[in-house]
Simulated scan of single mutants.
Amino acid sequence: MTSRVPDLIRHLGGLAHRRELLGRGLTRRQVETSWADGEIVRVRHGLYASRGLPDDIIRAARVGGTVSGASSLALRGGWQAPSPRLVVSVAHNARDLRDPDDAGARLDAGRSDVLVLRDRTRFCPRTERLLASPSRAAAQVLLHESPEFAAAMIDSAMRLPHRQRPILNEVLEHLAGHRTARGMIASLDPRAEAGSESIARVRLAQEGIRAEPQVWVDADTRVDLLIDGWLVIECVSVDFHSSPAAYKADRARILHIMALGYVVIEATYSQILFDWTAVSTAVTVALGRHAGARLSA
């Protein structure tokens, strides 16, 4: 009965080397027959997986490692950057790295859509068999992503269910000896409700402008970012304005905020990510009419 093979692989976490299966009493023939019958997936030579595992787990395993960093947080439900790359942790001395989509080809070291980290030796073999823990992944993000993307990824991850959420004290432990990355933790804020909000907040801070996220301006209304108590930045997305009713409701909301005495700048996801100069210019011109929004040096 080959059903023992998929059962054992599931018991091992969904991914198993042939030597592990043979060491638990299975035969080579049982493993090969189970694969031929479509019960399991052969990821690369000598490595098998349960059917139905997420693609990135399979692709990282095919490279020769574990889903990590931004890829790990995204799999758990965190914010994902446009054109994301696959982040894979491998052993420090790993050599036979394969293409994530073709086990028969070696990994092209020049691929921009795959980031290989040689830090898997530190992983817990029991809890990090398939992907890096939330706290380790957050630490990797702070080390290997831009400050604004790192903030967007970790802000959103800190809003996930408890077991999928990074713990900042653990993140700091993983960052021992990395002073710059540890300092970036101060820029995180889980109140942000969208990646574009986090990115705008961090980019404004880089320009010396402090923006507070998700501020209540009356009993029923919150704004995305508030600067100096009067300038509102609303980070808008087509996803939330895809119907005439939603668009109409948002226009009424903006008029209500303005009627409370606030100046409102609306910036789209695309503008924040890909045309920041236009957003920054609008904010700077608005602030030029008032004082006091600049952070102290």
Rank of each mutant, 00 (worst) to 15 (best):
S71V: 06
S71P: 12
S71F: 06
L73T: 07
L73Y: 05
L75Q: 15
L75A: 11
R76F: 00
R76Y: 00
R76N: 09
G77V: 03
A81W: 09
P82E: 14
P82Y: 14
P84K: 00
R85C: 13
L86Y: 06
L86V: 11
L86P: 08
A91K: 14
A91T: 10
N93M: 07
R95F: 08
D96C: 07
L97H: 09
R98G: 08
R98W: 02
R98M: 09
R98F: 01
D101H: 12
D101W: 11
D102G: 12
G104E: 10
R106F: 13
L107H: 08
L107M: 05
L107Y: 06
D108C: 07
A109D: 13
A109N: 12
G110I: 01
G110W: 09
R111I: 02
S112G: 14
S112C: 04
V114E: 10
V114R: 06
L115T: 11
L117K: 12
R118E: 12
R118F: 11
D119V: 10
T121W: 12
T121G: 12
T121H: 14
R122P: 02
F123G: 02
C124R: 13
P125C: 03
R126L: 07
E128T: 07
E128Y: 08
E128A: 05
E128V: 06
E128N: 05
R129W: 13
R129K: 14
L130I: 03
L130K: 10
L130P: 02
L130R: 14
L130Q: 13
L131E: 13
A132Q: 03
A132L: 03
S133C: 08
S135V: 05
S135A: 15
R136V: 07
A137E: 05
A137T: 05
A138F: 01
A138I: 02
A139Y: 06
A139T: 02
Q140S: 06
Q140G: 04
V141I: 02
L142E: 06
L143F: 08
E145C: 15
F149W: 15
A150G: 09
A150W: 07
A150T: 10
A151T: 03
A152K: 04
M153H: 13
M153S: 08
M158I: 01
L160N: 08
L160T: 04
P161D: 10
P161V: 11
R163W: 07
Q164I: 02
R165P: 08
P166N: 14
P166R: 13
I167Y: 06
L168E: 15
E170W: 08
E173N: 14
E173W: 09
H174N: 11
H174E: 15
L175M: 00
A176G: 14
G177A: 09
G177P: 00
R179N: 01
T180G: 01
T180I: 10
A181Y: 11
G183H: 05
I185V: 15
S187A: 15
P190T: 00
R191V: 03
R191K: 11
R191T: 03
A192R: 12
A192F: 02
E193N: 04
A194L: 06
A194P: 13
S196D: 01
E197H: 01
S198T: 01
S198K: 08
I199M: 06
A200W: 05
R201A: 12
V202I: 15
V202D: 04
V202H: 01
R203C: 04
R203E: 09
L204R: 02
L204P: 03
Q206G: 13
G208R: 02
Q214Y: 08
Q214I: 03
V215P: 13
V217L: 10
D218T: 06
A219L: 11
A219K: 14
